[in-house]
Write a protein that binds this DNA or RNA. Structure first.
Lengths: 342, 342
DNA sequence: CTGAAAGCGCTTACAG
DNA sequence: CTGAAAGCGCTTACAG
């Protein structure tokens, strides 16, 4: 009855599929099939296997399955931040899209660093992922090489690629930046500043869109651009608005690269008795929940971050299954939310 | 030179350790040792193996390693939310504590559901985790049973357990709730309401602490408690403050179970022309970044969420390594942040 | 310090 | 519909 326990045994003590099969009186592979492709097994044997699973409390060993089948059912997701609400929404979309299909999602936080991204990917490749979801379009050479040689399907999130071979789901960051600047220009503001932090890919592109609009309107002035590499926080927004006004006191509007900065700038203005938008218009980007509720409410760009995650994951799943992607880039657009602050 | 490719081969095409060994002219297990315990291999062979790894672009197969070694190097983390800044901070602490040690972190989002937690754990147990980090102290019977039978080390986060056998890292939620209520009472407020949402374990305990303080002061009144199961959001805080004032117009202070609710309540008061704290004091819980910057700034309880994650992960790592835990519960405390709103 | 062999717990062709 | 055998890519005692 009991298992032979010679000193050479390396058995883990866990209940194995073989034990389940023995209990059910079938071959191991019949037990395997009963669990993974039940329709191929006769109802009677299937029931016996299921009973044995129940009685023994069998838990499949994922490592063994991955090794034998050469399919890990792992999907790697790399995001630049876990504290940024934008990316937690992206993750929620990914989970909702993938959860029904038994994938194991490996979430890596690159902390906005290309080097960190490469390190993480290097480790995660050991799990032999079936697919990869990346944030942004540009990556280090090491990352490119790993992706090329592994030939694992990849979908890029948040922006749209010009490269036909690169699957991407998001919206045009440049165009969104342009749209917001254009809105301020059309409202009659002349000295429109841009406040950017982190200086990640997306901030750079939003600034690019802003610059284009300003140049078209003949309003461009390098002094109006305030870019710092520090992480975006409310505190930084509060600080930067002070620096902006010190350098260009005639500034009448500020386009913040995201809502955190905008919120901080507005709180700071309130403390200094600068009325928003009368004396200084302020707008943000992303439409975080607080933007609709603050007083003044914040003009910003609504972004489809949850859907970016959901659609990117769905696209990836299709590719993994060998389907032809309906499009190599999926544009989910963005929405200008005109509110009180600008 | 080339590998024989008979039709029966199931080789994945990936570079294996055996290939590395062949290239280096050593046995497979010497190659294995050169990578995992380099100090046991002579410098010369080690160098040859390293060169072969480089030349071949060898990536270890984690599934094979896990299967052969019976150690997965996986740590499972279950949190109730990925959009709540509290838990993203906890995750950051966990990652910082574990990253240097090569663990693979599997993050599960239970969405505040016991059933979902059980489902996730069930799936994650297939990965044969070396340790588990759970949020909260109370779990479903199914979860308890899985943990008991698997005998995998577990550390609970966010609260302190009364059960000696249960490792926990956090602070007393009941006491923190009591402290905040006591603060309001000492300030002279008489009709102090409590607004709770989500009704997770922590909210319930904070309410318990509030109730205890109110009873001690002879101020308790069930009408002052407004509890709803909806997720905590700014919008909900804005709505609930209206409901609270409709039911108890003489309410002079509100203790919100978290900052999101408090922010929403304050924004709503601003819109309705109710001055905070003069007409209505409002305080929150957790000290999110905006609380220090809003106008009025928000009185709240500062919680050591990053440290909870860091210390819980460190404790877990110790236990996995077979160390005797220094204590079965680690109290990280909390801080009352007295500001303008109450 | 180095290696031949066995084994971890599954799944995959293949055959019946 | 069912099964005996081989194999996935590593690591672990054990021996030298």
């Amino acid at each position: 009855m009991t298992k032979p326990h010679n000193s050479k045994s390396r058995a883990s003590g866990r209940v194995t599929l073989a034990a389940v099969a023995a209990r059910a009186g079938v071959a191991t592979m019949t037990a395997s099939r009963a669990l993974s492709q039940p329709e191929l097994v006769s109802p009677m044997l299937r029931a016996r296997v299921e009973l044995a699973v129940e009685e023994l409390g069998y838990v499949p060993n994922r490592a063994a399955r991955a090794l034998a089948s050469a399919r890990s059912n792992v999907i790697v997701v790399l995001v630049p931040s876990l504290s940024n609400a934008v990316f937690t929404a992206v993750l929620a979309g990914i989970q909702d899209a993938l959860d029904p299909y038994g994938y194991q999602i490996l979430i890596g936080n690159t902390r906005y660093s290309d080097a960190e991204e490469e390190k993480l990917l290097n480790v995660y490749m050991q799990s032999n992922p079936d697919g990869i979801l990346l944030s942004g379009l540009s990556h280090s050479k090491g990352v490119q090489k790993m992706l090329d040689t592994s030939r694992v399907p990849v979908v890029s999130m948040m922006d749209l690629s010009a490269n036909v071979g690169q699957l991407s789901v998001g919206f045009s960051q440049v165009q969104a930046g342009y749209t917001m600047a254009r809105y301020l220009i059309d409202k009659g503001y002349k000295r429109i500043g841009f406040m950017g932090a982190q200086l990640d890919e997306r901030t750079i592109k939003r600034a690019e869109g802003y610059r284009k609009a300003m140049e078209e309107a003949g309003l461009a002035d390098p002094k109006l651009e305030l870019m710092v590499a520090d992480p975006s926080t409310i505190a930084l927004g509060a600080e930067l608005v002070g620096r902006m006004l010190a350098v260009t006191p005639d500034c009448d509007a500020i386009f913040c690269c995201n809502d955190d900065l905008a919120h901080g700038a507005i709180y700071q203005c309130q403390r200094r008795g600068i009325s928003v938008p009368e004396q200084l218009a302020i707008c943000g980007f992303n439409d975080l929940p607080a933007s609709a509720w603050m007083n003044p409410s914040v003009t910003t760009i609504g972004t489809p971050r949850y859907r970016v995650g959901f659609e990117a994951a769905s696209l990836l799943r299709g590719v993994i299954r060998g389907e032809q992607p309906p499009a190599t880039q999926i544009d989910l657009g963005f929405t200008l939310m005109a509110r009180e602050s600008a």
